[in-house]
């Protein structure tokens, strides 16, 4: 019954409002700075792609993977075992409000995305990522509620991860 209503609704919707797709020559979502140039009567509008400011500081292994089109993970590619106290690395994978970035942005494999997400949570709970939190949150780590105000550390081997479904020499997925 539900499906029937759905199809009828979709059909009527399609008839009344035909779907219009805008045509773009470049990916529409890129970070662009809009530049306006006025010359006499002609106004030129340019979308300039903004640099993230990280290109010059990227590890050579990362750019190598990028050129090859291979996925880069700190553990799979570099055999780098992160801890929750490595805030300088973990802060690269989070937004300004402290949220973990999604996998399509971080470009990690599924296991590493899960693991680094948990490490970020651990670092938040330990109060180590103090600057990265929602703007309405003004409390220092030692002003938090009940037991949360005391220092806590975590063991990385307690992170539960699914079994790797790829072999050891294969690239991660």
């Amino acid at each position: 019954m539900n499906n029937l209503i759905k199809t009828i609704f979709q059909r009527s919707f399609a008839l009344n409002f035909p779907f219009i797709r805008s045509i773009t020559s470049t990916p529409a979502n890129r970070i662009k700075q809009i530049e306006l140039h006025q010359e006499n009567d002609t106004l030129t509008v340019k979308g300039k792609i903004v640099d993230s400011g990280r290109e010059s500081l990227l590890l050579p292994e990362v750019t190598e993977c990028k050129n090859k089109g291979v996925r880069f993970c700190p553990e799979c590619s570099l055999n780098l075992h992160l801890k929750h106290t490595d805030v300088l690395i973990l802060s690269q994978y989070i937004r300004k409000d402290g949220c973990m970035l999604p996998r399509r942005v971080t470009g990690l494999c599924k296991r590493q995305q899960r693991k680094i997400g948990t490490l970020v949570t651990m670092a938040h709970k330990a109060g180590l990522l103090h600057g990265y939190k929602p703007s309405w949150c003004t409390k220092l780590p030692n002003q938090r509620y009940k037991h949360k105000k005391f220092n806590t550390y975590f063991f990385e081997n307690t992170i539960k991860l699914p079994k790797a479904h790829y072999k050891q020499n294969e690239p991660c997925k």
Binding site: P27, N29, R30, I31, I49, S52, R54, E55, L57, L58, L59, V62, K66, F72, P74, L78, T85, V87, L88, I89, S91, Q92, Y93, R95, K96, R104, V105, T106, G107, A126, G127, L128, L129, H130, G131, Y132, P141, Y153
Partner: peptide, 28 residues
């Protein structure tokens, strides 16, 4: 452990990066 707000800003900025945003990334 060191809290990130106790680390100087230029140390954070000049620390080697292992993640770069994709070209179609749109910040909030």
């Amino acid at each position: 452990p060191q809290r990130i707000d106790h680390i100087e800003k230029d140390v954070i900025d000049n620390y080697p990066k292992i993640m770069d945003y994709p070209t179609d990334y749109l910040p909030k």
